[in-house]
Amino acid sequence: MLRDDLRTLWTEPRPPDAPARVRRDWALLAAGLAGVALEAALRENVVWRPVAVVCAVWLCLLPLWRRTHPLAVVTLAFGSVILLQVASLVAAPREPVGLDTTAVVLVLVYALPRWGSGREIVLGGAVILAAFALCAVTYRTPAAEQVGGFVFLTLPGLAGAAVRFRGTAHERQLEQVRSRERERLARELHDTVAHHVSAMVIRAQAGRVLADTDPSAAVEALEGVEEEGARTLEEMRAMVAALRDPRVGAELAPPAGVADLERLVRTPGGRLRVDLGLDGELDALPPTVDAAVYRIVQESVTNALRHAVDATELVVRVAAERHTVRVSVRDNGRRTGRGRDGYGLTGLRERATLLGGTLRAGPGTDRGWHVDAELPRGRSGSGVHSRPRR
């Protein structure tokens, strides 16, 4: 089992989307260089002052690449420390060589498990341990101080590993939410396509029966088959992007839609007054869009009930235009915490993206929380258009 764990660690890839540099990197560099200047100017009895200053400046510069090249910067930084200690062993100075500002290397210890691959973590850890062991031999520190120094050196690495694990767990949860939303959408699309195909078969059978006796009725039946086929192709293009887990059974109840919004907004207890406005032709929406509108309003109402402090009103607007359906949900309360999207909004954003639309959620300019979505009534650019029935 230990061998399997080590093999898993060795093959662990780097975390995706590591930022090259952020604003705090430059703040860290400025603070490090200022510390080097102050320590070099004010501290007395600095051994090999020019060498110590150059080494400290070098170590302050390396963290700029700690996310994109974690193993390289660790090797360069602690390799420099090793070279300095080897020179100390040869020259045998009375005091330790270097400035206290070189403690900036602890940032690299943190970055190695946070942003490195498994192979980089193992190799970089070996370099760090080698530098620590050489320092302990060079200065012949007592065992208690060596243990304390080792703990002090490894704590940033443990913190980096913990942050990485938490971020990975969060991403895994988000991916599960997206997968469940794709699965739910795929079930709805499956039922819709099955309905259209059944209608096509019935119309084709009717056209075949009427072909000899009533050619005009047969042509009308074929036009109906063409219309149903166009709708089916439209829904199947959306199915390509959805993933369905075959282990999960389809739900027997049909998905709720715009027609169910009146019942939805009757909030329990009457704490929030919900102002529901429906505008445009909302009776003939594609089933997937119809269900998505209901889900957006449902999640927004639930979030308002849970998180909108001192809210008294919730305004819900659903407007159908020629090519799009717009959904807007706004409350007048105030939010506690960071205001970060929950897993429900993540799933809705995934659903909107799969349908070719967008969803935005965030605090209002004055107060409250706003959710705005725009969904296409049908896939554009498919090259297939439905004819109206006669």
Rank of each mutant, 00 (worst) to 15 (best):
L261A: 03
M239F: 12
R263H: 07
A241Y: 12
V248N: 06
D212C: 15
V240P: 04
E228S: 07
L264I: 00
D245W: 04
A217L: 03
M239Y: 07
A241H: 12
L210S: 09
T213W: 09
A221L: 02
A218C: 04
G229T: 14
P246W: 06
V258E: 00
A217M: 02
V209S: 03
E235L: 15
L264P: 03
D245K: 01
V225A: 04
A238G: 10
E235T: 08
L222M: 14
V240W: 09
G257D: 01
G224Y: 00
G224F: 00
P254M: 01
E226R: 12
R237I: 11
E234G: 14
D212M: 08
V240E: 11
A218T: 01
T213F: 11
R208A: 13
D214L: 08
M239Q: 11
A259H: 11
E228A: 05
R231N: 07
A250S: 06
G207M: 02
A230D: 08
V240I: 13
L243Y: 08
A221C: 05
P215L: 03
V258R: 00
R208P: 00
T213Q: 15
E220I: 02
L222I: 07
D245N: 10
R231F: 07
A241V: 14
L222D: 06
L222S: 13
R237S: 08
A211Y: 02
R247W: 09
R237F: 07
T213V: 10
R208M: 11
P246G: 07
P215R: 00
L264K: 01
L252E: 13
G249R: 06
A253E: 13
M239H: 09
A241L: 14
A256I: 08
R208D: 07
A256L: 15
A250W: 01
E226A: 13
M236F: 06
M239D: 10
R237T: 10
E226M: 11
A218Q: 01
E235R: 08
E234K: 05
R247E: 09
A217Y: 02
V240H: 11
S216C: 01
D214S: 13
G257N: 07
V248D: 13
A238L: 14
M239R: 12
D245T: 05
E235K: 08
E226P: 04
E220Q: 05
G207P: 03
L261F: 03
S216D: 11
V219E: 02
L252D: 15
A253G: 09
E227P: 09
R231A: 10
A238K: 11
E235Q: 12
E227L: 15
R231W: 07
M239W: 12
G229F: 14
E262S: 15
L233Y: 04
E228G: 03
